[in-house]
Simulated scan of single mutants.
Amino acid sequence: MTADPAETHLAKTLIQAVETADSSARLLEAVQQLSEARLEAAIPTLIAALGYNNPGAAVAAVDGLIMLGKAAVAPLLELVDTYNYGARAWAIRALAGIGDPRGLGLLIEAAKNDFALSVRRAAARGLGTVNWEELSPEQAKSAQAEAAEVLLEVLQDPEWVVRYAAVTGLQELAIAMAVSDTDWAMRILSQFEQRIEVEDSQAVMARIWMAQKEIHEYAVSMLEKQPDPEVKTLVSALDLDWQATLDRLYARKRREEPLPEGDPRKFREAAATIYKEIA
């Protein structure tokens, strides 16, 4: 297929603008214009922009790569910067936004083993946005199970923002597997219950609660469409008292908040401590 001369000229002009930009503002503008043009010839330049020390340009490049879709997947997998963790995180975001199953291996590896929390976070979120329908039912079931196993590991990550992303990914997976693999969806819910008992981040606890609610609403809608006994079991497992759950979250938050100066409870606690020491 012969390239369109006008398109080729436009690509060269826009790419040159990126490569010759002499300020952060001009670089951002040049990358935005290149992204908006949606030219496949621009993919290597957009990937290179992920590694520039310019977050605005990186965001624009990610947007452009996502708009280019499948054409950007192979170059992203091939050209991802293994030394620059910032560029790696942006590349993972682009792959997550595209959702092509070809990126699954990289997402799994990054979520499990990358030293950079920004990369693990992006990968964990991405594992919930894979376009599973592009795989055969057998392939999808196996790949979803592998992704869920990894995200359950990531749910123990020392960084709360990564755990938060894992909850988001697990929510999407549970919804995707609500009918095709109800046992796995139930396992995810069970792990949510276990995690919330030991979780020390209020944000992660609230995100788990929201995930439970979203999964419940989806399962109820599915049950209305098809009276599947397994989906009914899933709905029953999520028949939670949401107000009681919220009360529990708030009570725990109150317990963990530091007492203000002058609060009588501080004196009671101090007196109790002194009594124990002299008793």
Rank of each mutant, 00 (worst) to 15 (best):
V73I: 04
E153D: 15
D81W: 06
E138S: 00
K70A: 14
D63G: 09
A147C: 15
E78S: 08
L104Y: 03
F115C: 15
L127A: 07
T82G: 09
K70E: 13
G105T: 07
W132V: 00
G99F: 05
A123S: 07
M67I: 06
E78V: 01
N54H: 12
V80N: 02
S142C: 06
L107I: 11
A94K: 05
A148V: 11
Q139R: 08
A61N: 10
A96W: 02
A58D: 01
E134V: 01
Y83F: 06
A122M: 13
E134T: 00
E134G: 00
I108F: 15
P75N: 11
A110F: 13
K112S: 08
N84T: 14
N131F: 02
R125A: 05
A110D: 13
L152H: 03
A143Q: 02
D157V: 13
A143L: 09
G56C: 13
A96Q: 09
G86H: 10
G128L: 06
S118N: 12
S118T: 13
V59F: 11
A124T: 11
A140I: 00
A61Y: 10
L76F: 03
A91I: 11
S142F: 02
D157Q: 15
A111V: 02
Q144W: 00
S118R: 10
Y52Q: 05
G105N: 07
F115P: 14
S118M: 12
A111G: 07
A124Q: 05
V119G: 05
P158I: 15
Y85E: 10
A57E: 07
V73M: 07
G126H: 05
A111H: 05
Q139I: 01
V154E: 10
R121G: 04
E146N: 07
V62L: 11
Y52H: 09
A60G: 09
D100Q: 00
S118P: 07
P55K: 11
V59H: 09
A110Q: 14
I92E: 06
I108T: 14
F115Y: 14
G99D: 08
A123G: 10
A122S: 15
E153S: 13
A145W: 00
P158C: 15
A60W: 12
G56M: 12
P55Y: 12
L106Q: 10
E134F: 00
T82E: 11
K112F: 00
D63R: 15
Y83V: 07
W90R: 08
E146M: 08
L155D: 12
V130A: 05
G99S: 15
L77G: 01
